[in-house]
Computed example of a mutant assay.
Amino acid sequence: MKSELKRLTSRSNGGSNAVRKSKLNKFIAGWINYFSMADMKSMLERMDEWLRRRVRQIYWKQWKKVRTRYKRIKKFGIPLWKVHEMANCRKATWRAALMLNSVLTKEEIAKPGYLSMLGYYTKECVN
């Protein structure tokens, strides 16, 4: 499952965010419906955290320039010194995605329509 999620959230596949989101949502729904009888709540919590970090990594990579990062992070209403610090971060994408956790929260990632694995599991599966 993790290798397929890695393939779907790859930054080099050339698809738009809408295409990536729809493929990811189809995969999550299909996988959870197939394994709905299993008790996998803790595993899905870990995979959800990892997947959200992958999505943050994608957004960080799309915001290529410091100016773009500054504008996008500023929209979330955090202090300007923190915006400046985050936008000028020179860490790699995986580390920067961890830093973006305070800006792109679960709710912000769910707004465009990304499914939460654990949310879908608790909604659809009765265990």
Rank of each mutant, 00 (worst) to 15 (best):
V19L: 13
N33C: 01
T93Y: 14
Q62G: 15
S36F: 08
M40V: 12
Y114I: 13
Y34C: 08
S10P: 06
S12T: 15
I109S: 03
E4Y: 15
L100W: 01
P79M: 03
L104F: 13
R56M: 04
S22M: 09
W81D: 14
M37L: 11
G14S: 05
N13G: 01
L5P: 06
W63N: 09
L51C: 05
R67H: 05
E45M: 13
W81V: 14
L100S: 00
K2G: 15
L115W: 09
N17H: 04
K65Q: 08
A110W: 15
V126C: 11
Y121K: 05
L51W: 00
K6Q: 14
W60K: 12
M86F: 15
M40Q: 13
M117A: 09
K6W: 11
R67L: 07
R11H: 08
I109C: 03
K26G: 08
W94T: 11
Y34S: 10
S12Y: 10
R52I: 00
T9I: 04
M1F: 14
Y120T: 09
K106A: 12
L100C: 00
L51R: 13
R56A: 00
Q57M: 15
R52K: 01
T93A: 14
C89Y: 09
E107Q: 13
L5V: 05
D48Y: 12
Q57R: 11
Y59C: 05
T93E: 10
H84C: 01
N33E: 13
R69K: 15
D48E: 15
V55P: 02
E45A: 13
M117P: 02
Q57A: 10
K21Q: 03
E124Q: 14
T105Y: 12
G15V: 05
R54Y: 02
T122S: 11
R56N: 00
R52T: 05
K71V: 07
K65T: 15
K61L: 06
L98D: 14
L24N: 06
R90G: 03
S10I: 02
T122L: 14
I28E: 07
S16W: 03
M117G: 04
G113Q: 12
L51N: 00
E49R: 09
L104E: 05
S102D: 12
R46D: 07
A38H: 12
A96P: 09
M1Y: 13
L104I: 13
A29H: 02
A29Q: 15
I73D: 07
W31K: 04
G14N: 06
V19A: 14
R90Y: 04
E108A: 07
M117C: 06
F76E: 06
K6M: 11
R95P: 04
R69T: 02
R54K: 15
Y121W: 07
T122W: 06
E49G: 02
S12D: 10
Y59V: 08
R69P: 12
K26T: 11
I28L: 14
P79D: 02
E45L: 14
A38P: 00
D39W: 00
N127K: 13
R53V: 02
E4W: 12
L115C: 04
I73K: 06
A18I: 11
N101V: 10
L80Y: 04
K106M: 10
A18Y: 10
L118T: 12
W60M: 10
K75C: 04
M40P: 03
E108P: 05
L104S: 01
G15C: 00
N13L: 05
V83G: 12
R20C: 08
M1R: 01
T68L: 03
I73F: 02
S42V: 11
K26P: 06
K71L: 10
K2A: 11
N33V: 00
W81H: 14
L8P: 04
